[in-house]
Amino acid sequence: MGKFALTKNRIVSLAILVVILVFLALLPTITKGYLVTLVADMMRYAVLTVAWVVFCAPTGYLSLATAAFYGLGFYVAAVFNGPLPFAVVIIIAGVVAFIVALLIGLLTLRLRGVYFTIFTFAVVLLVNNVVLEVERLVTGTRGRFVETETAQTAFYAMLVVLIATLLTAVLIRRSRYGLALQSIGEYEEAAAHSGINVVMTKVLVFATTSVFMGMAGAIIATRRTYIDPGIAFNMTTSFLPVLMAMFGGMGNLVGPVIGAAVFTYIGETLLTRFPDLYMLIFGVVLILAILFMPAGILGLGQQLWRKVKGGRRAPA
């Protein structure tokens, strides 16, 4: 905890991180084409996956509420973008997601296991239908137009949110709350009897990570001209981060980022090259990944690396 010894490994990782960030920062100045949109999309899923992993991986609480917070971000953008500056809109989306997640957390985080998962699934449907009914009865509309932003603006906004998500994730995992979350996941009762305020820890971390989901939604919404509840609260947004986290590996934060990037790329490629077979191939890839890479891409990489280095066991 808090010990920042500058080992060789750490310098190498930091150097790689800096190179990636510089590359990302310069990307929209090099090309204005599809690549910017693709990378922005990868970053969007990296935000959702990392935010999901911070709470769900250590605690073992499998949340499917991601789409609710993400969709609320869509609607915040639809209502406020234009009248208010884009940066303020993103912050409002984060605040709205936080408050809603706080309420949902207080209701659901007393549930455990599959009951929690089903409840979070239902929450997305609930928010979806509430928005739908409000539009039908109060505003008398169906869907809304969104004041758009350029691909570059959305790209940089997403980059900033991604960096904020990763920083928050690192801070939580390294702090005492990281240990608290892990204790809760390992034995919740023992955690409570060791002095951890289990409910408050879970609710606060759940709400904090939801902030980034809402922000990502607000940014992506500005790349569309029209949204409706079906688009905003699409359940796929809840499932993908779970799959991407499994695909990348949840042992640390690099796994989810790589998982999100590779998964997004594979998905896009399949969708454009084989639009008819897209889902079929995707399903097979996913099943193979789960069967043969239980620790994700990162775990597989570590295994191969160990073999290359001559079968020495890595220190535990």
């Binding site: 005492r176 240990l179 608290a180 892990q182 204790s183 390992e186 034995y187 009762e189 023992a190 955690a191 009897h193 060791s194 002095g195 951890i196 305020n197």
Partner: peptide
């Protein structure tokens, strides 16, 4: 506890630190 309730995948020292940090 009658049946031990430790945090099995957490190192011994950090199991104990939970008590010191929170309890």
């Amino acid at each position: 506890f009658q049946t031990v309730k430790i945090f099995p995948h957490v190192p011994v020292i950090r199991n104990v630190m939970v008590g010191a940090l929170f309890g």
